[in-house]
Design a protein around this nucleic acid. Sequence first.
DNA 1: CCTTTCTCAGTTCGGGGTCC
DNA 2: GGACCCCGAACTGAGAAAGG
Length: 300
Amino acid sequence: MATFSIKDIEAVSGIRSHTLRIWEQRYGIISPKRTDSNIRYYDDDDLKYILNISILNKHGYKISEISRMSKEHIGELILKLSGHNNIYDTQVKGLMGAMLSFDEFAFHSILTTSVIQIGMEQTIMRVVFPFLNEVGVLWQVGSIHPSHEHFASGIIKQKLYVAIDGNIGRHSEYKKRFLLFLPENEQHSLGLLFANYLLRARGHEVLYLGQEVPMRDFKDALGGHKPDYIFTILTASHINIDKQELVNNLASVWSDAKILLSGIQFVKADIDFPESVRVIKKMEDFIQFANSISHNYSQN
DNA sequence: CCTTTCTCAGTTCGGGGTCC
DNA sequence: GGACCCCGAACTGAGAAAGG
């Protein structure tokens, strides 16, 4: 079971640490365990409970009122709120709680409800990415296990696969050909998968090679597919790769294609980008680009 | 109806301890 | 040694209740 410092709780829940202490003192609302030197630490259940309290509090419930509610009642109210409004923070906190308790049903239903309410794209942009951002905060401070991240990203990927499936073969007359891949050792495929979905939803043809693609296999795929665009993402800082060489290789390997690069490692890299290369700084920019090449596209 | 008082919730301050 | 944590007390602001 993971443990969290009061600072971790503050970072994830948005509740200031002194406020947490005063809640504890005045309302006995949470009673974290203490180290031998009297420092508070919180477990998964505590964090989930605090996230729920924070949601109710933001929806106007008084803290004194919440302190008198049973955990079951709080759970019921949260489920109601997640289902009946589209304030994204509620969904983000809900996903966090579901992840920490490995509650697959809750995780699925929050995502599904959101997709029904605001569509797949907005769910990814406004709920999933902010959620992953918060996971990243906990990840950096070492407060969650890899299993939590795998659990969450597994379900999110599953949702994306289903959504992608629904668009297979639906090509528009203005379709462009895309080749999507991740360089060797780059593991974070969610962004690429989302790009796959965005493009297919707009009627483009996508050859999705996924992660761990060696350059020679990549070259084999090019001849058959003849892409108009090649898109890749590089985010992981630990990858020992010559980025300039990778960029040069990509620019020369299929000269008919434009190269689209995204991910922090390209965005902040000190590289000479050939003319055919375009760096996409944010996912919003990719969506804008995808819209600009997609005639008559309207979301959802 | 307006002012005063009370209640609630969050913030600030100061002093001391713990951790890295 | 500096960042972080703990605690209690006092302060602040908003809103509700009381009362003249």
